[in-house]
Each structure stands twice: as C-alpha cells, then as structure tokens.
Amino acid sequence: MQVKPYNVYVTVAYPPDTDTPGFAKENQTKPLETRLISETTSVCKPEQVAKQIVKDAIQGNFSSSIGSDGYMLSSLTCGMAPVTSITEGLQQVVTMGLFRTIALFYLGSFDSIVRRCMMQKAKSETIDKTA
C-alpha cells in the first residue's frame, strides 16, 4: 500500500517445485519426509513458472500461482492481500470453506507421512543399537 501512489505494484509468487539445477541440488539433501510430501504434486517446467509469474506481474495481480494446488494456497493465505477485481474477492470468499476442507485432508496426509518416517527412523535406531 505504501508504494501504490507511485504506481508500483507487488506480485507475490507461489512457485511450485520447479525443475531447475537448484531443485536438483535441494533433492540431494532433502529429508525423506520433505521429499515424500513434495512428491504429492508434479514438478513444473521453469518456462511455465516464469511465464505465469511475468503474466501475473504485468496484469498487476498481487498473487501468482501455478496449478490448482497453487491457486488453493494463494486463496487460503490471502488474508488482507489486495484483490485485482471484485470477482477475485468473491471467488476467495466463496471457495475458502471448500479449500480449507481440502487443505485439512492434505495436512492429514502430510502428518501421516511424517509419522511413518518417524516410526521408520525409530525402528532403524533400535536395530542399530541392538546390532
């Protein structure tokens, strides 16, 4: 809001996992839990991500996201974010409950992944101590 009088707009990007050298390097040291959670969605091409972010920035959109997961994330985290149109604001209001319900299923799945990994680590540590 501070830069709005100067015709400066901000776009917040929610990029998904993107097939870049940095992502490949990250995957080499990523904890198992994080890798398994990350695998629940697809990896995007850098050109696709860049094209969408630039398009949204040019259009003056505050949020830029890719795919349905990204759209849901940007809607769920909109809070006091400005909207580009009344339609965008109404979509956020109408879909908030549905998206929160879907997000709870995601969170349950992610919790299950973390719990399984913890149990697997505990089992491995027990085996290592007895060996």
Rank of each mutant, 00 (worst) to 15 (best):
F62D: 00
G22A: 13
F99V: 02
I66C: 04
S74V: 05
I86M: 13
Q59C: 06
E26N: 05
K25D: 05
V93Y: 14
P46R: 08
T84R: 13
A50L: 08
Q59K: 15
T77H: 14
Q48W: 11
F23R: 10
G70F: 06
E88V: 02
V94S: 03
T20D: 11
P31C: 13
T41F: 13
Y71W: 09
G67K: 08
N61A: 00
C78N: 07
L98C: 06
S68E: 00
F99L: 13
S85E: 08
R35N: 04
E88Q: 14
R100M: 08
V49F: 06
D56Q: 10
T20R: 05
K25V: 06
I53M: 15
T101K: 15
M72Y: 10
Q91H: 12
T87R: 07
I102G: 04
P21N: 08
G67E: 03
T41G: 15
K45R: 14
E88L: 05
T87F: 14
G97P: 03
P15K: 12
L98S: 07
T20V: 08
I102W: 07
A57I: 03
F62T: 01
C44L: 09
M80W: 04
M72I: 09
E47M: 10
V83I: 09
G79V: 05
V43F: 13
T18E: 00
V54K: 12
S42R: 15
A57D: 00
P21V: 10
G22Q: 10
P15L: 00
P16I: 07
A50R: 07
I102L: 13
T101W: 14
K25W: 00
L90C: 13
M72A: 15
S65H: 10
T101G: 12
K30P: 00
